Simulated scan of single mutants.
Amino acid sequence: MVERLALTEKAKALIKELSSTHGDLMFYQAGGCCEGTQPQCFEKGGFYPRMNDAMIGLAEGYEFWIDRDLFEYWKFSHFTLDVLDGFGPGGFSLESSLGKTFKVHYRLFTEEELKELSPIKRME
């Protein structure tokens, strides 16, 4: 199976730091403007995915959800979760208080990868 989500070492380290402070986490990538342009990290249960949103994988064991409309646009793309220094738009995500912001890098899947994609989970 080809995973839809990967993490940089910087993202893994920040997730570990956030989870030690906040407990279980979750990620949500919205499809709108401002905060929707980057993934948001919340305490688990701090945000509720909408019906038919897609969970594309786990970020260090924590669910990574994508807005249903955004997923339709990006469903042929691989996501790599990374971290940048600086304050992201909005500041609702947990890492904002640390002067960090999560970012996703995208690339298209190859023809071979498309045949082996891991399944997604939909919010019902």
Score class of each variant (00 low, 15 high):
88 G>K: 03
109 F>D: 03
61 G>W: 01
16 K>T: 14
114 L>K: 10
16 K>R: 13
124 E>P: 12
80 T>P: 01
122 R>E: 01
44 K>P: 03
53 D>K: 07
9 E>Y: 02
50 R>Q: 14
63 E>D: 15
57 G>I: 09
116 E>Y: 07
74 W>H: 00
32 G>R: 03
103 K>H: 13
92 F>P: 04
81 L>S: 05
100 K>W: 01
10 K>W: 01
91 G>C: 11
22 H>K: 13
45 G>K: 14
10 K>F: 00
114 L>C: 09
33 C>S: 10
38 Q>M: 13
81 L>D: 00
16 K>Y: 06
82 D>Q: 03
15 I>C: 05
85 D>Y: 08
27 F>L: 06
48 Y>A: 05
74 W>Y: 09
70 L>D: 01
119 P>F: 05
105 H>N: 11
41 C>G: 02
91 G>D: 04
19 S>D: 09
8 T>Q: 00
29 Q>F: 02
98 L>C: 07
108 L>A: 14
90 G>L: 10
43 E>V: 08
21 T>W: 02
76 F>M: 13
52 N>M: 04
99 G>Q: 03
119 P>K: 08
1 M>W: 01
94 L>A: 14
96 S>G: 11
116 E>I: 12
123 M>C: 07
117 L>E: 02
68 R>C: 13
38 Q>S: 12
110 T>Y: 00
69 D>H: 15
28 Y>T: 10
32 G>I: 09
58 L>C: 09
105 H>D: 08
94 L>P: 03
110 T>R: 07
106 Y>M: 08
27 F>H: 06
84 L>H: 05
25 L>G: 03
5 L>R: 07
102 F>Q: 06
108 L>G: 08
62 Y>N: 09
69 D>A: 14
30 A>C: 10
113 E>L: 05
88 G>P: 08
21 T>K: 15
69 D>F: 15
118 S>N: 07
38 Q>Y: 00
18 L>M: 12
48 Y>D: 12
69 D>P: 02
67 D>C: 11
4 R>V: 05
95 E>A: 14
86 G>Q: 02
73 Y>Q: 08
92 F>V: 14
37 T>S: 09
10 K>E: 03
23 G>I: 07
63 E>I: 09
124 E>H: 03
73 Y>V: 15
64 F>L: 12
34 C>M: 06
80 T>A: 14
88 G>S: 05
107 R>L: 06
121 K>W: 02
